[in-house]
Write a protein that binds this DNA or RNA. Structure first.
Length: 939
RNA sequence: GCGGGGGUAGCCGAGCCAGGCCAAAGGCGCAGGACUUAAGAUCCUGUCCCGUAGGGGUCCGAGGGUUCGAAUCCCUCCCCCCGCACCA
């Protein structure tokens, strides 16, 4: 009696059995090592099935490699660095409704626990426990002795060491960076912190200093400093609120009221002297060394919220300015300073004409501006008359003029958003703040980039195509601000006010896993010398021992262990992390480790959809992994996640497909149990050999796909496609035969192993029922037995299948059930033709025909040869030479006779098999037979 | 804008690099049948159009081209998705 498939029971059982035997706790051995790791999770909420996939796929690879005889390390830890849990704690303290709802209702945190979450570390503790429990239930082959949190002292020592070494390599610098900033929260803002303005970039404006006769600076804001030579006037909004200020205790400026705070945030000292209306300024004049004296004009279009609120007018090259000057009472003559091909005379004039714009309120002005700016930037040249910059292309002049003006004290830089508003999640409008003395990692170091490019070239990337993403990211990375003022993490060793931010402290920890299991028991200070010795083979064991208090033997053991596992073989991580984390960790490896410790491979993962929609915890659009396990069982979840898409592709959790996956497993459970109980004898018919041939191909394909982490294809081959073959086999033969029983039993012994990495619980359970005293996970992964792969038998069976399908089709079209079926196989001379065709390179019917006609035996058949030739060409084009060779060798009559009974039962008709020209053939069908496609007559 | 990846039957998705068993794998959905008291599960069959003989027509985002032959190679165009930094 076959008992039922009860996933929950067997899964609980095997989790504890594997545990009891410490199966996944791995230490260095004589076997080859295989080290696979995943980006450690940030445990601030419950796992959903998307997370599940992130860990399931590497686990499948880990289990597969383990069965292949490798000593496999798959570790896990908890990333706690940064601000998210702090923010969550704060929101819980503030009783924020959305947050409480998320944690109580979606994550199902017990009421009494919630208040503990006011302490961020409690959140981490709670969810890392939950993660671990669920990861165990999913059957992940993780060595839990090595787990740690990134706020543990040992880890902090490791990060401290790492940063000191980076500093020694001169890849850490200090600089000034403009950031989006919330004045209310007093914190820089990432895109995810924004309510509005995620698209906004920070533009670098130049404030060009024009001086009024009474000694005030009118700082004209521009993105195009090179146009300073064409300034004819200055725009001030007459209704605008401006102020006179003392700037940096040096200069007196006039700027819009709104600009005051911005200047302060950009590290200026601002003292307001008095308010002034824009109107009061109009009619004055101001001068600049590059332009001379120009009037201050009325500009209604001036936006007081852009930079300084003071604008210079370059009518020759700015459509807005030109349109506005037309409305002025005094006439202003545009001053051309850029030559652009395609624009005669004054470029702005041409573009206004082109768009038919006559006034400053025209809505096409933006588009016209964009077009002209684009052309001038890409094709423009400064006119010859301009001193020093004459003839220079605009692209270059822009940089150069800007730099020179600043150096000469004739301009300042100011940062401003490219679009507004930019609003923080707290509701406050964000500003640009210039952070000074910010520590950064200098990824623009050319030598470092080169080494990292090299490392990527040497690596196995899955899929291959991501290598251009890596190279591109390496080239593009500049300075990365690596410290923060707030958050959890490790203090920067030489400037303790700063905390190393999360993406920077998670770059080398794969190495830390190799020794972390030793460190928890030690209550010692882990010095830089300690890490130098273990990881870099530098220094003296004895000295390290004295400094740390760790026994020399122990230190040696750790060093050996690191060297055994490192470099790692594969790191799995989400695809979108290529542009930061995955590339960072490559950089850090190349900076700190010698080449023989550089990563060997990266395999990227796609994102998750739920019924075709993007999965998102914050929207509640997720299925929790725990719920999925409860409902379907871990094996089903694993099998589905592995087979729904290739790892790097996006997967889609669809309930009906998950259900169907579970049914398939139920069915597999029954099949395997039944077949494994069968006892037979190795007395094989061709159909048995056919199944063995197909099965060994499945093994071959599965292994090939798994090597490339193609879990979806691997499942296709090992399960779905092979199941089809099995179904055909069951239809074709009597399973009560000894030979059939032997075949099914033999195959199942291997099939169960083949599937084990995907569905470890189900397979282990069935394996254990066989009264073997081994664990399936400790068995060897199957290898294809080439001796069983038999092209001839496969071609023969294919012939039978084709004939069956043809008969079927005729029955369907005619809608008549035949009582007798006549099958006529092709004559030998047709096979000769096939032989000739297969040997010719081109399938040109004319050439083949004239070749054939040289021989008497064909010439006397005349037109028949031509028809046959055409049919044969149609039939076999695309079939590979090897298979054609087999087809020629097949004895079709004999082969089909083998299937006579099968066909008889299949169609409930009497079957007659003859060569064409023999036997009953009232409709003279026989002559249409060609090799591999017998003619048919149904009656 | 920059960089990357795509558009394949009702849906999801293989195939494309190495052109020809490709009307195009597999899954889901749908329809019919077998089994069952029934439902479910399982198995079989079908699922672009036409066809009372295994055939024919049209088809792989759109349009051209190369080739005996194109979903696959080349060109042009349209559309979609992802990443782009102080966020894990």
């Amino acid at each position: 009696m076959i008992d039922e498939y009860k996933p929950k029971e067997i899964e609980e059982k095997w989790v504890s059995r594997w545990d009891e035997k410490d199966i996944f706790e791995v230490d260095p051995s004589n076997e080859d090592s295989f080290y696979v790791n995943v980006a450690y999770p940030y445990p601030s909420g419950s796992m959903h099935v998307g997370h599940g996939r992130t860990y399931t796929l590497p686990d499948i690879v880990a289990r597969y490699k383990r069965m292949q005889g490798f000593n496999v390390l798959f570790p896990m830890a908890w990333h706690v660095t940064g601000t998210p849990v702090i923010g969550i704690s704060r929101r819980i303290r503030e009783r924020d409704e959305d947050t409480l709802d998320l944690y109580k209702n979606l994550y199902k945190v017990p009421e009494e626990k919630i208040s503990d979450f006011e302490n961020p570390l409690e959140i981490v503790k709670y969810f890392s426990n939950e993660y671990k429990e669920i990861m165990r239930r999913m059957g992940y082959s993780i060595d839990w002795r090595r787990q740690f949190k990134t706020v543990d002292d040992e880890y902090k020592s490791f990060i401290t060491w790492q940063f000191r070494r980076l500093k020694e390599k001169n890849v850490i610098g200090k600089g000034t960076h403009p950031v989006k900033y919330c004045p209310n929260d007093e914190n820089p803002l990432g895109d995810h912190d924004l309510l509005e303005g995620e698209e906004a970039e920070i533009n670098e404006f130049y404030l060009i200093k024009f001086e009024t006769e009474d000694g005030f600076v009118l700082p004209c804001a521009t993105l195009r400093p090179e146009t300073v030579f064409g300034v004819t006037n200055i725009w001030i909004k007459p209704t605008g609120d401006y102020v006179k200020i003392n700037l940096d205790e040096k200069e007196k400026w006039i700027v819009s009221k709104k600009a005051v705070n911005k200047l302060k945030e950009q590290n200026h000292v601002v003292d307001v002297i008095e308010d002034v209306k824009g109107r009061e300024l109009i009619g004055k004049s101001a001068q600049h060394p590059k332009t001379g004296e120009v009037p201050v004009s009325q500009g209604d279009f001036v936006d007081l919220d852009v930079a300084s609120g003071v604008v210079m007018s370059v009518p020759a090259h700015a459509p807005y300015d030109l349109a506005a000057t037309k409305d002025l009472e005094t006439e202003i003559e545009p001053k051309k300073i850029i030559e652009v091909s395609g624009y005669d005379g004054i470029p702005a004039k041409r573009i206004l004409e082109k768009y038919g714009i006559s006034d400053q309120n025209n809505e096409d002005l933006d588009e016209a501006t964009e077009e002209l700016y684009g052309d001038e930037f890409s094709k423009g040249e400064m006119v010859q008359e301009i001193d020093k910059y004459g003839g220079m292309n605009v692209r270059k002049a822009r940089d150069q003029v800007g730099k020179d003006l600043v150096n000469e004290g004739l301009a300042e830089k100011m940062y401003e958003f490219s679009e507004k508003p930019v609003v923080c999640r707290c509701g406050e409008e964000a500003i640009v703040k210039v952070l000074e003395n910010q520590w950064f990692i200098d990824y623009k170091n050319q030598e470092w980039k080169r080494k990292t490019h090299d490392a990527i070239d040497e690596m196995d990337l899955v899929p291959d195509e991501i290598d251009s993403d890596f190279h591109h990211t390496i080239d593009w990375l500049k300075e990365w601000a690596c410290t923060r003022k707030v958050g959890l993490g490790t203090n920067l060793p030489w400037d303790k006010d700063w905390i190393i931010e999360p993406l920077s402290d998670s770059t080398l920890y794969m190495a830390f896993y190799t020794i972390s299991k030793y460190l928890k028991k030690e209550d010692n200070e882990l010095t830089d010398e300690f890490f130098d010795y273990i990881f870099l083979d530098k220094g003296d064991k004895k000295e390290v021992s004295e400094k740390t208090g760790i026994a020399p033997r122990k230190i040696e053991e750790m060093k050996k262990e690191f060297e055994y596992w490192y470099p790692y073989d594969y790191r799995f991580s989400a695809k979108d992390l290529i542009s930061n984390h995955l590339t960072f960790q490559m950089f850090h490896h190349t900076a700190i480790f010698p080449q023989n410790k550089w990563p060997q491979g990266v395999s990227v993962l796609g994102m998750g959809l739920l019924e075709g929609e993007k999965m998102s915890s914050s929207k509640g659009n997720v299925i929790l992994l725990e719920d999925a396990i409860e409902e379907y069982g871990a094996d089903t979840v694993r099998f589905f996640l592995a087979s729904n898409a290739e790892p790097w592709q996006d997967f889609d959790w669809r309930e009906n497909q998950v259900k169907s996956t579970k049914n398939n497993l139920k069915n597999l459970w029954k099949m395997l149990k039944r077949y494994l109980e069968m006892e037979g004898k190795k007395d094989l018919k061709k159909i048995d050999k056919w199944l063995l041939s197909k099965f060994n191909r499945s093994i071959k394909n599965t292994v090939e796909k798994l090597e490339n982490h193609e879990t979806r294809s691997a499942v296709q081959h090992s399960f779905y496609l092979f199941k089809k073959k099995l179904n055909w086999y069951k239809k074709r033969t009597n399973l009560e035969r000894k030979g059939a029983k032997w075949t099914l039993n033999t195959i199942s012994q291997k099939w169960i192993k083949l599937l084990s990495p995907f569905i470890p619980f189900l397979t282990e359970e069935i394996w254990s029922k066989q009264e073997k005293d081994t664990l399936l996970i400790e068995e060897d992964y199957p290898e294809p037995d080439e001796e069983y792969i038999n092209e001839r038998i496969e071609a023969e069976e294919n012939l039978i299948k084709k004939v069956r399908n043809d008969i079927n089709e005729i029955i369907e079209v005619t809608e008549k059930d035949p009582e007798e079926i006549y099958i006529y196989t092709a004559s030998d001379w047709k096979k000769d033709i096939l032989n000739k065709v297969s040997k010719s390179e081109k399938m040109k019917i004319g050439e083949l025909m004239s070749d054939l006609m040289k021989e008497d035996k064909y010439r006397k058949r005349g037109d028949k040869v031509k028809d046959t030739l055409q049919d044969i060409i149609n039939e076999i084009q695309g079939i590979n030479k090897k298979e054609i060779k087999e087809i020629i060798e097949i004895n079709e009559k004999k082969t089909l006779s083998r299937a006579k009974n099968f066909l008889k039962n299949e169609f409930n008709a009497k079957i007659h098999i003859n060569e064409e020209g023999e036997g009953y053939d009232p409709k003279n069908k026989g002559k249409t037979a060609i090799p591999y496609k017998p003619a048919l007559y149904l009656n």
